[in-house]
Amino acid sequence: MHIVVCVCQVPDPQAPAGSFYVDEAAMEPRWSPAAQPLLSTFDLHAVEAAACLKEAHGATVTALTVAGPEAEPGLRRALAAGCDQAVRVAPPAGAGHDRLAIAHSLAAAIRTLPPADLVLCGRIAAGWDMGHVPAMLAEVLGFPYASPVTAIEARDDGASVELRRLTVDGYEVVHADLPLVAAVSNEINEPRYPTMRSVLDAQRATITVADGAVAADATAARLTALRPRDLSAECELIDGETAEDRGMALAAVMHERGFV
């Protein structure tokens, strides 16, 4: 089985909200102090899912990204966490926010690799919060698609998987023939830490740089403004000697202001 895990780096999603600001002229997000670029959280779960399938059934796992060289630490993290090889495709010129160009570039790169049985992605990358790429990739490849996936088991026939996907009010158990694109959610596993040895090995591994970027489409929706949204509120702290007193005082305020 050949599993391709599509990964990307994002600015640390746990960076304190106060460090975030917007450069409105450039329509770019900024962080001060800088938010560390990290492998996207859900992608870590996708890598772990691939590593588990590899352990259970044997598989080759390729980590793939469409990004500049600044994304290589993320690929190395994927290598340390169980991927066998890493491929980076330089992003298409002028892609901007065109996710479809990214999906086409990923698909083009996947077609140059040994046939992929399973393509795993994270369900969404924190930041622009779009989550388009996995679904688009499935369409471009012509593969069926499942998301958000919270469990995945390979069947003995090696040609199909059984998975769970979340629904609005619960989940479904689904049978799918391979190949398939699955976008995983965090419930699927607890990513293990890479060991120091695997971290060192990953640092020494070679990352394949492929071209295959597919030009962006001029008709993509264009970003015309980015502005900050201040959600912060002036918090009125309830006073009181003990926690119980403060609970009672809160009740009085809620009652008085007609919250109940």
Binding site: A17, P29, D129, M130, L226
Partner: peptide
């Protein structure tokens, strides 16, 4: 659409 965990709003046009 909101983005960056609702810390920003973005306008997109077609």
């Amino acid at each position: 659409r909101p983005c960056f965990s609702a810390k920003a709003l973005s306008d997109w046009s077609v």
